[in-house]
Nucleic acid binder design. Structure first.
Lengths: 233, 233
DNA sequence: ACTCATATTATGTGCAGACATATTATTATT
DNA sequence: AATAATAATATGTCTGCACATAATATGAGT
């Protein structure tokens, strides 16, 4: 098989995707090596490598030194999900953002949160419960624990005025995070906060962030009934 | 500021991340250009470019030709989410996978599905309802519509033996997809299928895939109560 | 036949130089 | 002062060459 000259890595990527989608290269097949493809496409090997890397990052190719490159047999397609800043998400849909602090105190976190945040049994953290609103209507409830040792300055922030997440984004950069998506049934308390009915199904994001080995914050965000989070592959 | 010589793009990436996290470069700041950083780090400009591209892909830098590279002011952190093959997900947790066809017929899809799949008003599609089980227990219910025009061969597949998703992965590669995550409240029917209680909150993934402009399939996957989907940033 | 050592190989990357491209800054003109 | 044209600039990429590295294949020895 020979092809017209491909001049850019995007051209190579398109050709490679075409061969995968047409099943010219079947799942599990070893594809020609970079040098041979470069020869066939009339471009540099580095250009082929650049293109194949992108296709592999999308999950469609498995690459190994010496072994070569195979079409993935069970492609685990990867979607890129943006972790939004709530204000941004609301404003991008042309709604007015507002915020309300429900409560804030220092306390010893419950066992599960402590384990997740890897804090000691007697270590106090800052608990912040807040509500984000879109056009004055409840959008997402936020239950957050912040590790005071990691971010002592948070204690001098007026959290009735400023939302904790935005302050943290500006002042406590994280290097890694765990995220979990799930569904819960609204109890009476959350139903009241979100203006939902008891037992409504609510979409939940649980997130914990670290700076190196130091936990910054663990947050549970419970979205209003009917919320969808969308992305593309 | 001058730094020890950095020999690899990963070293450059680490140094750059360090400067961002330490706020040496603040959100909104224009960072030194590639050539200057290359000079400072004692490496090639291409090496700096490679590293900065990775950091930008993670959402922490905004890059523009001529304008230069800025630290993102509201970093929209990007998580990579693997769209799993259910069998794989179950087996990777050391459970036995099994599958049951609930029903299958050709029919005109409901209005919402038709719109999502961009099918004509009289176009019939293949409807497949199925259940995936882990260790004999309901794991995820799948309601699927398949565009017969895109994949006519599906009509000759025995879907009581073979799960539609796996057949499609092998035989109908997709080039793009839309995915949506949400929560629903179990009605009596789904509660029975998933051995849940009526009104339980259930995590849902809705997905539509296309090959070019041709819709392949639209599927609603409703997970067992308590399901979490996890990833990392 | 099995095990170990060595050679080979395909991907991963660094480098220098050049060119491409989108964008901003500067200069010329009115 | 405003506008248009031109120049400069920083990112984006291609190339050829070389080296690095993980992994597989081959050959030698028992």
């Amino acid at each position: 098989m020979t092809t017209a000259q491909l001049n850019t890595w995007q051209d190579v990527q398109s050709e490679v995707l075409g061969r995968i989608h047409s099943r010219y290269w079947k799942p599990g097949d070893l594809i020609p090596n970079e040098a041979d493809l470069a020869s066939e496409f009339g471009c540099a090997r580095a250009t082929v490598n650049r293109a194949l890397r992108a296709v592999a990052e999308a999950g469609l190719l498995d690459r190994k030194r010496k072994a070569g490159t195979r079409v993935a047999t069970n492609p685990v397609r990867k979607a890129t999900l943006s972790i939004p800043i709530i204000r941004q998400e609301i404003e991008e849909s042309n709604r007015a953002y507002s915020y309300g602090l429900i409560s804030s105190r220092t306390a010893i976190p419950p066992v599960g949160v402590r384990a997740q945040m890897q804090l000691g049994e007697t270590t106090k953290a800052l608990y912040v419960a807040a509500l984000h609103l879109a056009d004055g209507r409840p959008y997402v409830s936020e239950d957050r624990w912040i590790n005071i040792d990691a971010v002592p300055d948070i204690l001098s922030v007026d959290l009735s005025l400023e939302n904790a997440n935005e302050w943290l984004v500006r002042n406590a950069p994280f290097t890694r995070g765990d995220i979990s998506f799930s569904a819960i049934q609204a109890d009476a308390k959350i139903a009241e906060i979100l203006a939902a009915r008891t037992d409504d199904a609510l979409f939940v994001i649980d997130r914990t962030t670290w700076n190196g080995n130091t936990t910054i914050t663990a947050v549970r965000m419970i979205f209003h009934a009917g919320y969808h989070m969308q992305t593309t592959v």
